[in-house]
Amino acid sequence: MAGLNKVMLIGNLGRDPEIRYTQQGLAVVNFPLATTESWTDKNTGERQDKTEWHRIKVFGKQAETCEKYLSKGRQIYLEGRLQTNSWEKEGQTHYTTEIVVSNFMFLGSRDGGGQSGPGGSDYQRGGYQNQPNSGGGGGYTPNRPAPNSDNFQGPSQPGMPDGPDQSIPDDDIPF
């Protein structure tokens, strides 16, 4: 049976990207990404926030692009996979889980802040993707709509209706 390891996040950088190079000359960038969930407490009526921090790793030309254009607070959409690493220190095994990026898009304004305007339309167009058989370098796809854009429509799934005139049969499940 095949497996799936895919992560999609929209969040803000917790600090400027740090670039390093492997002995073979491959660029590697690391940065923390914050994703925040907000809700209103039913009992008190107060707004609540919960922030999760994610370790992000980017390789190759994508890493160089991140280092050049991203900064603390900037909003980004990314896709990648989970990777867990372990190491020994003073007889104890330590673990860390990070997200290895396969493609990303800058969101928000170029000058930092990172917050999109109403409907998410204030984003920098353009997505960066690892292309198959490209040696890990990134390819540039111009004018690709951001996921939170008003005109974004995700890919349709096989077997699912594509338009509003088609409907999924009602199976009397109350949710």
Rank of each mutant, 00 (worst) to 15 (best):
P155Y: 14
N143G: 01
Y21D: 06
T36Y: 02
T22L: 03
D171N: 12
G11M: 04
Q166N: 08
G135Y: 11
G80H: 08
R47C: 00
Q157R: 14
R47K: 13
S109H: 13
I10W: 01
T35F: 00
G139C: 04
Y95W: 10
V100Q: 11
T65C: 03
S102F: 00
A146L: 11
N148G: 02
Q24R: 15
G136V: 03
G45W: 00
R55N: 14
G112D: 12
P155G: 15
R74V: 06
T93Q: 12
N30C: 00
K42G: 02
R110K: 13
E64A: 08
R20Y: 11
E90I: 08
P174G: 02
D122M: 08
E64G: 09
S86R: 15
S71L: 05
Y69K: 04
I76L: 13
V28G: 06
I76P: 06
P142E: 02
Q124I: 11
G14P: 11
S134T: 10
R15M: 04
W87M: 12
P155E: 15
T84M: 13
V100G: 03
G163S: 12
S38H: 07
T36V: 09
G113L: 03
G139H: 05
P17Q: 07
G120C: 05
Y128K: 09
W39H: 01
K61R: 15
Q83V: 10
L13D: 01
S109F: 09
N103Y: 02
T22V: 05
K50Y: 02
S116R: 05
N85L: 07
P164N: 07
H94E: 10
D172E: 10
F104M: 15
D49M: 08
K42A: 05
S149Y: 05
S109T: 13
S86G: 13
A27P: 10
D122C: 05
A27G: 07
G120K: 03
A63H: 07
I56Y: 03
L9I: 12
N130P: 06
I76W: 10
N12L: 03
T96M: 01
E98R: 07
K89G: 11
V58D: 06
D150P: 13
R15S: 09
G80I: 09
Y77G: 13
V28W: 06
P32M: 04
E37K: 08
L33E: 09
G119E: 00
G60N: 08
G138W: 09
G73F: 11
T44G: 01
V58K: 03
K57S: 15
